[in-house]
Design a protein around this nucleic acid. Structure first.
Length: 245
DNA sequence: GTTATTTGACCTTA
DNA sequence: TAAGGTCAAATAAC
């Protein structure tokens, strides 16, 4: 999936560029708002990581994917989502959404009247520890193929808290390697800050690698190129598009 | 024993 | 009142 890798590289480059801008801004405090730059850096890396994650959904990587799936734990007696389709998906087609880098805890599932499959509800595993209010809903939306819609609601603040802790440690004179500290601070959660909501960001992952943005009640599907264009439109340096938070 | 998942009940909203 | 979202006790896995 070289196309996706190219996109990922682009995203990383954009993130790098934004990081450089942020560095410059921080050296000249007050000149430019820093928050949009933070968001762009996070979004860039998030998107790149999501692409890598989706590239790992190729059947050849199935075994490793299954290992990494955080919600794979299932009771043999109780069906995860009560539908054959989802079971089939989990076991026969790796679920990329479950490998989005965050740790999720399932807190419910519901049969949706207009849909043939149940909707599963997850919240951040650190919702209490780090007061992270991020949740997601996973819904299979097609019977004929393994297409799942994951709707992310809320913003992950768990990794932000971890970074604050990290920065405190560093500023307190710790000599430990920065990345060692990151690994310690957030073994599982240093990962994508997917497009966050007030508007919900919805990503569909399936056999066609479709991505979807859901804007209010008007849904539309787009391929990853369109999604990319939406997320990171062509722009000159210093003229980024930021998503409202 | 601890932690995660399941699932019916309850709450909220349109 | 119906439908979607969340809670929490029961249950299963480790």
């Amino acid at each position: 999936m070289y196309h996706g890798v190219d996109k990922a590289v682009e995203a990383l480059l954009l993130g790098q560029e934004s990081a450089y801008c942020l560095k410059t801004v921080l050296e000249h405090p007050g000149s430019v708002p820093t928050e949009p730059l933070f968001d762009t850096v996070l979004d860039s890396f998030s998107f790149a990581l999501s692409l890598f994650a989706s590239s790992n959904t190729h059947p050849h990587h199935q075994s490793s994917q299954n290992k990494a799936t955080p919600v794979a734990r299932k009771s043999p007696k109780k069906n995860n989502c009560g539908e054959d389709g989802l079971d089939h998906y989990i076991h026969d087609s790796p679920n990329p959404v479950c490998n989005d880098g965050f740790s999720w805890r399932k807190y419910g599932q519901k049969k949706i009247k207009t849909l043939s499959h149940q909707r599963c509800y997850y919240r951040c595993a650190y919702d209490k520890d780090r007061k992270c209010n991020a949740t997601k809903r996973v819904q299979q939306i097609q019977d004929s193929s393994s297409v799942f819609r994951t709707t992310y609601v809320g913003k992950h603040i768990c990794e932000v808290n971890a970074f604050l802790q990290l920065n405190n440690d560093i500023s307190n004179g710790s000599k430990m390697n920065r990345f060692d500290k990151i690994d310690q601070a957030m073994p599982e959660s240093i990962m994508p800050q997917l497009v966050q909501v007030e508007q919900e960001a919805t990503i569909i992952k399936g056999t066609d690698q479709i991505m979807n943005l859901e804007c209010g009640s008007n849904e539309f599907l787009m391929d990853d190129e369109q999604f990319w264009g939406y997320q990171f439109p062509p722009c000159s340096p210093g003229n980024f598009m930021f998503l409202d938070d």
